[in-house]
C-alpha cells in the first residue's frame, strides 16, 4: 500500500524531468522554421494561386475564346468577361476581370476551360492597400 503510493509519487515526479528532456532535445537541435521574407517557400507545381491567362511566350497571345464557361462555373461569381467579335469573326474577351476578394481559389475555372487558356500562378502575397486593387484585369 505504502509502496504503491510511493511508486505513484515517484512516477509522477519522474514524469517531469522526462518531459524536460524532450524539450531539451529540441533546444539542442536546429530550429525548423523558415525566416520568411529572407527565405521563401517553393510552391508545389499544383499550387493554386491567382487565376491568370496563359500568354504564349513567342506570340504573346492568349487562348481565350470568351466562351464564359469559367464565368458560369465560378461559385462566387468573381470572374467577369465582356465579349466582342473580332475582325476574323471570332469571339474574344474585351475585358476579363477577376474580383480577387471574392475568389476562393478553388480552381474550377481552370479545370473547365475548353482551350486550357487559364492557369493558377504561384502568387501568394496578395494583400493590397485598397479595395480597388483587388479587382484585377487578366488581360494586359
Amino acid at each position: 500500500m505504502i509502496l504503491k503510493f510511493a511508486a505513484t509519487i515517484y512516477n509522477g515526479v519522474m514524469s517531469l524531468p522526462q518531459g524536460m528532456m524532450v524539450t531539451l532535445k529540441y533546444f539542442l537541435k536546429k530550429p525548423v522554421t523558415m525566416q520568411y521574407p529572407d527565405q521563401k517557400w517553393v510552391m508545389p507545381a499544383r499550387y493554386r494561386g491567382v487565376v491568370s491567362l496563359i500568354f504564349d511566350k513567342n506570340t504573346g497571345k492568349h487562348r481565350c475564346i470568351a466562351c464564359k464557361n469559367c464565368v458560369k462555373i465560378c461559385p462566387n461569381y468573381s470572374l467577369a468577361i465582356e465579349t466582342a467579335v473580332g475582325e476574323d469573326k471570332k469571339w474574344f474577351p474585351k475585358t476579363f476581370t477577376l474580383e480577387l476578394g471574392q475568389c476562393m481559389f478553388c480552381g474550377l475555372c481552370v479545370e473547365i476551360c475548353p482551350t486550357k487558356a487559364l492557369e493558377m500562378n504561384k502568387e501568394y502575397e496578395l494583400a493590397t492597400y485598397t479595395r480597388e486593387e483587388l479587382t484585377r484585369s487578366l488581360l494586359p
Binding site: L24, Y26, F27, K29, P31, V32, T33, Q35
Partner: peptide, 13 residues
C-alpha cells in the same frame, strides 16, 4: 530566444 529554441523556432532576431 530560449523558449524559441525549446520550440524549434528562432525567436526575435
Amino acid at each position: 530566444r530560449i523558449c524559441a529554441r525549446f520550440q524549434s523556432r528562432v525567436g526575435p532576431n
